[in-house]
Amino acid sequence: MRPTKAQIQMTETIAVLFIFFVLLIFGMIFYYKYVGFSLKEEQQAAVERRAAEVVTKTIFMPEIQCTTGNLLQNVYCLDVMKMNVLPTLVSGHVEDYYFSIFSFATVTVQELYPLSKEGKGRTWKIYDNPKKDFTFKKQSSFYVVLRDDAVRGQFSGRVKHSFGQVVVEVYS
């Protein structure tokens, strides 16, 4: 029997609705994939921001920064004598204080020049609290001068300054 006008119309309507829902589903899949991608990008950007923040906080910490009496702070200068004692102090106060500053991260200071006769420079692990199951990890480095008051010129009193690197790894 030939389909009636109404039946053709119904079929047409159903077909249109079918196409509409197919398009809607495609749209939703595309949207959620985009949101997911954008979220990952945002997380990565947040980790990068945090890495820069942790570096800034490290080099400006009174516990590590060089001081010259009451004069303005020494920027990009870390005190070796302070660094010799800081890791022990920080490790004893991670949960009650320093976690609020650094969160999940590791902060290491390395002496790059001069090196010892064995070709090694001193290393200080200032903060060590990595995240075990991390999604993102970002490393950031800054170069600083390491002031060692224990090594001074006998006649001039000038203090030894080494070239060093602050390496920060943040986790999320």
């Binding site: 990009y76 800054f142 170069y143 090594v151 006649f155 000038r158 030894k160 080494s162 060093g164």
Partner: peptide
Amino acid sequence: FDRKQLAVSTLTAVMRTTVLGCSPEETEP
């Protein structure tokens, strides 16, 4: 921003690094 700070901190560190063992003041940084 990070790169500018990198340039500043690196040059500061280079300029303030001391060298030991130069004559005539071998023990002076």
